[in-house]
């Protein structure tokens, strides 16, 4: 379930804007994915299978953007509803385990398609022990 302390809805007139707060980079990336999939599939989600994706990018923001964009692609073409992701960082980027289930219209319809992840204002901040970022999802 979405933790309201970690994913905050921010106002945005046309699209969906979220602030993610986490105590590690792994959690930040997982929560960002969770925020996106909560828009796409707001209902129930049961973990029945896993998929692995690998992303290579140098800059942390690029890595986050590539990761979320790849999740959108995989979820759509493989009709896979992602309940949660577990991220492990590597020397060249990250490896993520996607846990979820096949899309079923009766159980998973009712969300909003995310057309893309905007680069506008996308930056990862570190304050003390906490990491944060703001993301605009085009819907």
């Amino acid at each position: 379930m979405v933790n309201p302390m970690s994913i905050e809805e921010l106002p945005h007139t046309a699209d969906v804007r979220r602030r993610i707060l986490a105590d590690s980079r792994e959690e930040l990336f997982s929560l960002a994915a969770q925020a996106m999939f909560a828009v796409l599939y707001p209902g129930e989600c049961d973990v029945r299978s896993e998929k692995i994706i690998t992303i290579d990018a140098e800059e942390p923001e690029d890595l986050l953007w590539e990761y979320l964009s790849e999740l959108l692609f995989v979820s759509e073409v493989e009709s896979f509803v992602v309940c949660e992701t577990v991220v492990r960082f590597t020397n060249s980027g990250l490896v993520a385990t996607l846990r979820g289930e096949p899309f079923e219209r009766e159980r998973h319809e009712g969300g909003r398609e995310v057309k893309g992840v905007s680069l506008s204002g996308l930056s990862i901040q570190t304050t003390g022990d906490m990491m944060s970022c703001e993301i605009i999802f085009d819907i």
Binding site: T13, A14, S118, L119, D138
Partner: peptide, 9 residues
């Protein structure tokens, strides 16, 4: 006009 990303809508 309203707030989008990149160009305004």
């Amino acid at each position: 006009i309203h707030w989008g990303y990149g160009f305004p809508i």
